[in-house]
């Protein structure tokens, strides 16, 4: 409740700048939404809904209007996410596996490193699987994170079959009775059919050993990405049934508005956000803060 109020206050402050609610006001609103990468359609949908609402309630004073708008925005956001759950799911019994997928350079390996640190500090026994055997230095990068986090990394030689690394890692997880296995995979563009098939295979290997795993398939999205993120979400969802999104690089100037369109169309919730390159720069997703962020500066 508290955060919603703060969010409302912040939005109020923003709307206080507008003296009257005329067409120019809605144009500005639309522009702000487009500039946050929500996409033209979504921006239009939202501003139309707000326009309708303001008319319906027949409000004229700006302070009233801002309240209506805040409420409506939160509603629009909440509606699309009604049956969604932005918490991470763990196995009720036995080991949990999270599979990380996404395009090149989105922040998969870094997120694995950050999350391992969080889980480790919660007292969980964590293992990492270096299933990016393709990119130069990828294994070393994850091993470096393993060292920082003091978490063991299951790896094989560069160029080896990623599915067999994953198999080894799942076996190790079971043998060592670890709580969580985080699987880092190679970046791949969603239109590369063979590489997408490789991901399918990795998932099958996990499921063969642990039928209820992976408990999460996390699509890592760079907040700087524009409309292509929707295509990423669609394609990765088709091959691996994505259960959640990690929105990285929100410490930059990009707002990551495309996740609104993804939420509307595919109903995939954001679960984590990346706010920097350090171990602690990982947070749970807070919808209100995010919506507010769409309108900031």
């Amino acid at each position: 409740k508290k955060s919603r109020q703060t969010f409302g206050e912040k939005i109020n402050a923003l709307f206080a700048n507008f003296r009257t609610v005329d067409e120019a006001f809605f144009d500005d609103l639309e522009e702000m939404l487009i500039e946050s990468d929500v996409g033209y359609e979504t921006a239009l949908k939202i501003s139309d809904a707000l326009r309708e609402e303001v008319k319906l309630k027949n409000v004229k004073r700006t302070d009233e209007v801002s309240q209506v708008i805040v409420q409506k925005l939160v509603d629009i956001y909440g509606e699309a996410g009604e049956k969604e759950d932005n918490t991470l799911h763990y196995a009720e019994e036995g080991p949990t596996v999270f599979l990380f997928v996404g395009v090149n350079g989105a922040g998969k390996t870094t997120t694995v490193g950050k999350l391992a640190h969080r889980l480790q500090s919660q007292g969980k026994k964590v293992l990492l699987a270096a299933a990016d055997t393709f990119r130069a230095g990828a294994i070393e990068q994850l091993q470096e994170w393993g060292k920082r986090d003091q978490v063991p990394v299951i790896a094989s030689a560069a160029g080896s079959d990623p599915a067999s690394v994953v198999y080894d890692a799942v076996e190790a997880t079971i043998a060592q009775q670890a709580d969580v296995l985080l699987v880092d995979t190679a970046g791949r563009l969603q239109n590369k059919v063979n590489l997408m098939k490789e991901l399918e295979k990795i998932k099958r290997v996990i499921q063969k050993e642990l039928p209820n795993a992976p408990q999460e398939v996390l699509l890592v999205l760079d907040a700087t990405t524009g409309q292509n993120a929707l295509s990423q979400a669609k394609q990765f969802n088709e091959t691996t049934q994505v259960s959640g999104i990690v929105l990285t690089k929100l410490d930059g100037t990009a707002k990551g508005g495309i996740v609104l369109a993804i939420r509307n169309e595919l109903h995939i919730p954001v679960k984590l956000v990346g706010l920097g390159e350090q171990m602690d720069d990982l947070q749970d997703f807070k919808p209100d803060e995010f919506v507010y962020g769409l309108f900031k500066g």
């Binding site: 500039e35 990468d37 409309q227 292509n228 930059g252 100037t253």
Partner: peptide, 12 residues
């Protein structure tokens, strides 16, 4: 620059 960059491309 990543070709998939959205609106932030100008600021960057």
């Amino acid at each position: 620059v990543d070709a998939m960059t959205g609106q932030a491309a100008t600021e960057v």
